[in-house]
Design a binder for these strands. Sequence first.
DNA 1: TTGAAAGCGCTAACAC
DNA 2: GTGTTAGCGCTTTCAA
Lengths: 335, 335
Amino acid sequence: MVTIADVARHAGVAPSTVSYVLTGKRSISPQTRTKVRESIRLLGYHPHAGARALATSRANVVALVLPLRHGVHLPVVMRFVTAAVTTARRHDMDVLLVTADQGAQGLRRVAGSAQVDGFLVMDVELDDDRVPLLRQIAQPSVLIGRPAAVKGLTCVDLDFEAAGARCVDHLADLGHRYIGFLGAPSVVYQRNTGYAQRTMAGFGAAAMRRGIASTALPAEDDYESVLASVRSLLRTQPAMTALVVHNEAALGWVAGSLRALGRRVPDDVAVVAICPDELAEQMQLTSVQLPAEELGRQAMELLVARLNGHPAAPVTLLPPKLSGRASTAPRLRRA
Amino acid sequence: MVTIADVARHAGVAPSTVSYVLTGKRSISPQTRTKVRESIRLLGYHPHAGARALATSRANVVALVLPLRHGVHLPVVMRFVTAAVTTARRHDMDVLLVTADQGAQGLRRVAGSAQVDGFLVMDVELDDDRVPLLRQIAQPSVLIGRPAAVKGLTCVDLDFEAAGARCVDHLADLGHRYIGFLGAPSVVYQRNTGYAQRTMAGFGAAAMRRGIASTALPAEDDYESVLASVRSLLRTQPAMTALVVHNEAALGWVAGSLRALGRRVPDDVAVVAICPDELAEQMQLTSVQLPAEELGRQAMELLVARLNGHPAAPVTLLPPKLSGRASTAPRLRRA
DNA sequence: TTGAAAGCGCTAACAC
DNA sequence: GTGTTAGCGCTTTCAA
């Protein structure tokens, strides 16, 4: 292995000089700098990460804590991940993957061994047992999602409540008076998942505000279940003319289910999805964007800022954005 | 921070003794052991990963190199990842996430800085520019997938050629004589992706062997494209009674497309998918399993074994397994 | 069965 | 503008 001493010898300078060339923490004469740079290139030198971590108490690695469990839509997770990793790399940080199944236990281990400088935690539940731990450990953390008690935590999230409401408002403005809601698989609600519950709450409250009748049901992610849920919604509320869908995996089956039940989109039933824009675009659905990349990027930026000594930011809520597409149309009054 | 010296002082022993208790590399009297263990617990001691890496030249971290680019089906990727991470943790290893967009450059950096002890590389192409690098670096690597030249490389892969052939055989045995093939998005083939090409090759060769007419087309992952591809297949080969689909993202649209074109599954057109079992189960499709978890697990096991001094394994090919479901039925001879 | 001490490779005072 | 050197926390020889 080629060490900093090798480089120093080769360039005819002291090891510390090489270090300073690398870190830029003190001024170096141009000649020395080029000489050192040349030696580094020639010898193919890379600083030993462990040694550096030991000397600086900084690993230049952040932990990315992922869900990977039932009911979370994996493509969406991947979007977060890509954005987070890309952003981390832009700040010369690497990313250690920690799966949620390792639990609070896993976090403690990683934190204790100083493997990482900070934590980016995805898919936080309303009452998450990792939160107390995150408050204890030495490293700062940023959450994607919001637990019930956010005091002192840095969180980034889509304003799901507003997102639910936005769907209702859009449909109400188009003249719809009976709206259904197709939610995530029921396990997601059982788990006390913030975003799912908040969307529901926002949806329900907005419907009340606008004097609109609403019915909601969860949906699993296979065709049969979706069909059953949609059928059940229509049976409960025969006058239903619009549907809000907050379930990426079910999305593909919704149009088919409605068709199978004799309803056409958007003429008989209008559909609004809450999902990543790309997915909505692909199926030509009116949708409220789930800005996964934006959330991942912002969360990582906040974490990096924190690591660089900036004060902890509180909760960042992204406002929902609705894009109109082919699946919604004004409700025609029938005489 | 609590160090090994703190623990030693607290337990009234030498630092080295604490170290030996931890690593088990020499025998310790039961009394001392319990005393030390107690101090560790009390003080909440965790060895500093960087310091340990420096002293042992072992980071206990492996790099997981992921695709995350267009045309790869993210849920499948996630399956690999979960299995790989879980397996790594079972061997007390952590996982550093390296995205493919960082390229060979990124691998060199990570390898050079001794951040990881080995590499697990997913989605390897036939002519992959990372392969030469992997041969150079100090750390061993295991590939999921197979480049054209596998000499000296450890690879784990599904036998995609056999998988393609298996589909044909199944359909041929049922009496089908005209079979279509719906492949991955065309970019995947343009990229020279091994598994896609091998499946095609196996499919084609088997069809020739069995004297069966075959037609193949790529498919993008939206409904319109799938419909167009299926229509085109039917136009090219009007007698087509069976379809092999090697495209997870398109799978959801296949049945609908066939229906839209007046064909019912399996009566008019039988469908065999090559995809993860769970997906096939969900849609009730006869399928050849894509054993993502198994591949991820085996790859990681091989890597860990290598790190523990075992000799490098060559290419491991998993045999394809076909599960019959509702989407295929014997072809009825029409008089 | 245990302790003492020499590094592992790097950074950051401190000195000039 | 540059060199010298004392650690960072751990492992592992060597010695007892």
